[in-house]
Amino acid sequence: MQIRSGRSLTPSSLDALDNSIIDILRTNGRTTNQDIAKQLSITAATVSARLQKMEDARAMRVVAVTDFAALGYNVIIAVGVKVQARSVQAVGHDLAKFPEVLSVNIMNGRHDIELLVALHDFSEVQQFLYDHIGSIAGVAQIDAGIAVDIAKYEFNVAPL
């Protein structure tokens, strides 16, 4: 869910074999090296070496994605933040420290920062928005939208 993080490093480009391994893992990230090897008619050692190489280059990562509900996050809020009298970057870094804040993006638009916040219970909303986020220096205005349904949430590209 990003963008440019200012990293100049370019990833070594992936070849057909790397992409075949990625395709198998996209379907099931826990396919064993042995099973991948069998499907691609190569050795498990080759699979292991390729995965290591891609992870070292931060080109890809196999992730366990846990559902919001499995973690007890029942309230998801999209919060737009306007910043005044402080650098947007500094405010963003402070907001990123809250574990409840799942994503922080600096925006070009009506708001300076967009947050995705996950809370366990509706009773936490007031305290989190007004006491925690509201107390960060530079936060001049917050506009919250409470999620009533998440119809799609598929990011297979992210800043690694």
Partner: peptide, 25 residues
């Protein structure tokens, strides 16, 4: 439709999401 573009990402948790498609296991 109000469009807003992210110019910089400071945080993204790839490990938490809404699972809307269940793969056949």
């Amino acid at each position: 439709v109000e469009t807003s573009i992210s110019v910089h990402n400071l945080k993204y948790e790839a490990g938490v999401a809404k699972i809307t498609r269940i793969a056949a296991i």
